[in-house]
Design a protein around this nucleic acid. Structure first.
Length: 292
DNA sequence: AACTACTCCTGGAGGC
DNA sequence: TGCCTCCAGGAGTAGT
């Protein structure tokens, strides 16, 4: 579910409301969502202060006092909502089900963090795939290393050269699964993969080896422009597989049978590499060799 | 090395 | 209304 722009927006919002807070108590209703590889437990969080929130790909990391850390991965359906003691929402993000603003805890709220000021952070996850790790701070980097994440697409080191060096090793791979591979670039998911490929005027089936130099440069630029636009202007709103009717972003994902914003041709939805995939058959003619 | 299929889960939508 | 099937903003693992 939440991809890089959603996690980054959530990080920024939570940073403003959570840094400086201390944990009071934590309720765990679904133990499998809390991973404690070094034997720490939620009880060890009590009294710890949140020092810093940072992000790597789709991982959201809380650095805590006394050398502890919390790491969240929301996977397909995780949602975090921070509410004040009087129930006002201060920050929220992630999967839009249950609807933001709904009463919490929801029946799918599996972990609840209570803070020293009476505010509460709810982890709600209707599909139970999300995870939160409790680690010593020294355990965070090894956890991230395990995922073998590619570069951060919005960081300066994500240059065209760095991108080329990684992507050329996947000559036969079509673009859609290539962009979804976190080892190529960290943070892209199903929605933004479609948006990036559309922006590049390539196709989901285009094979990496068929990209000429101009196409590769377009793809690299599109990764940055699409993701930074989403972080800046507001994340994609997809509800039950459909894009928001009141916004023009995302442009193709979730817009089956709606007109392409560029040429008006109806957007097509196919299954590709096992994922629902949207594209414009006119702007992105799937038989035509890539590039040019 | 590079794929694909399957797995972990629940719930909402749409067909009948 | 009820029952059924399909699908979903991810990613690890096993098998080919």
């Amino acid at each position: 579910m939440p991809e890089l722009p959603e996690v980054e927006s959530l990080r920024r919002d939570l940073e403003a409301t959570l840094v400086g807070r201390r944990f009071a108590s934590i309720d765990v209703r679904l133990p499998k969502q809390v991973v404690t590889p070094t034997g720490l437990s939620v009880a060890d969080l009590a009294g710890k202060r949140i020092e810093r929130l940072w992000r790597r790909a789709k991982f959201l990391i809380f650095d805590l006092s006394d050398g502890l850390a919390l790491v969240f991965h929301l996977r397909l359906a995780g949602q975090l909502v921070h509410r004040s003691a009087d129930g006002q929402t201060m920050a929220e993000g992630g999967h839009p089900v249950p609807a933001f603003g709904a009463p919490l805890p929801h029946r799918s709220t599996h972990v609840t963090f209570h803070f020293d000021d009476g505010s509460v952070l709810y982890l709600t996850d209707i599909r139970q795939f999300g995870r939160v790790w409790i680690l010593p701070e020294s355990g965070v980097q090894p956890l991230l290393d395990q995922a073998k994440l590619g570069p951060e697409p919005l960081d300066p080191e994500f240059t065209l050269e760095a991108f080329r060096e990684r992507i050329v090793r996947r000559q036969k791979m079509p673009l859609k699964p290539a962009l979804l591979d976190q080892k190529l670039v960290g943070g892209i998911g199903n929605i933004y993969a479609d948006e990036i490929i559309f922006e590049s005027r390539l196709t989901p089936a285009t094979r990496v080896g068929d990209l000429d130099e101009a196409a590769l440069a377009r793809l690299h630029a599109a990764i940055q422009t699409v993701l930074s636009f989403a972080v800046r202007e507001g994340v994609a709103e997809i509800l039950n597989g459909k894009a928001s009717a009141t916004r023009d972003f995302p442009r193709v994902h979730g817009r089956k049978d709606q007109p392409c914003p560029t040429c008006g041709t109806s957007i097509v939805k196919i299954q590709f590499a096992g994922r629902g995939t949207y594209y414009c058959p006119s702007c992105q003619p799937i038989q035509q060799p890539a590039g040019v």
